[in-house]
């Protein structure tokens, strides 16, 4: 790269102001800025009181104690209880985030994974995990997109993805109801012969929508002996 070419925001391609590098000198920050301040300000972190399982910001009319109603429903069902130890989602899935993720995943703008690299890395380091596992895509979907977005996020964060799972069914879930998705037979199968007994596993995905994808993945890992399965998503 040309020494004089300005650093550009990965999202809007605007120049990242020099001011920021001054700030980083004063604050002794070593982190490379991937996005400009304007874009950064539109990525809203999930803060405040969260559901202890799925990590969503708690809305008082939709929760009981420290669990949201969704998670209460999941936990009531014996076959799903305790499957997913804990989910952490970094940002709100607002319109801006929808656009960023759509460009990343559907348009295939791979390098947007770096937008989340810093935060993803520091949060992942705080979760006990022997393996970081991407949610797999089917072969057709992988060919269509050219890459697996979960894997791209892990690699982008400078960590090693361990592909323990593979897809059985196609991903075409979006038209099914929540009920269908929950009672769907197995979506994933174990890909690896790795001994999972007593292991802690962290699943990584781009969005937490209903939580059923992550729970399906978690359950099969638990059945294979994993001790705890947590998950991390960029948005929810």
């Amino acid at each position: 790269m040309n020494l004089f070419s300005p650093k550009r925001c990965l999202i809007c391609h605007g120049e990242i102001e020099a001011e920021i590098s001054w700030r980083s000198i004063f604050l002794n920050r070593t982190k490379e800025e991937a996005v400009c301040r304007k874009c950064e300000s539109m990525l809203l972190p999930i803060e405040g009181e969260k559901c202890t399982v799925c990590g969503r910001e708690l809305d008082l009319s939709f929760c009981e104690g420290s669990l949201c109603l969704d998670c209460i429903r999941w936990e009531k069902d014996e076959s799903w209880r305790g499957c997913l130890e804990k989910n952490i989602s970094l940002y709100h899935y607002n319109d801006f985030m929808k656009e960023v993720i759509a460009r990343f995943k559907f348009r295939g703008d791979y390098c947007l994974a770096s937008v989340f690299a810093g935060k993803l890395r520091s949060v992942l380091k705080g979760i006990p995990g022997d393996y970081i596992v991407p949610i797999p895509l089917s072969a057709e979907r992988l060919y269509e997109r050219g890459f697996n977005q979960s894997e791209a996020l892990i690699v982008g964060a400078g960590l090693k993805p361990v592909p323990l799972l593979a897809r059985i069914h196609s991903e075409k879930q979006s038209k099914k109801t929540r009920r269908d998705r929950i009672h769907l037979p197995q979506v994933f199968r174990l890909e690896s012969q790795e001994k999972l007994t007593g292991k802690n596993i962290v699943l990584v995905d781009d969005i937490y929508t209903t939580g059923s994808t992550l729970r399906h993945a978690a359950r099969i890992l638990k059945e294979a002996g994993a001790d705890k399965v947590s998950s991390l998503t960029i948005a929810r």
Binding site: R8, C111, G146, N148, A152
Partner: peptide
């Protein structure tokens, strides 16, 4: 060059500039 990036491509199995 600031408008190009590359990715590990599932279609060609190589690091692919886009």
């Amino acid at each position: 060059s600031s408008w190009f990036a590359s990715f590990p491509c599932a279609r060609c199995g190589e690091s692919c500039i886009y």
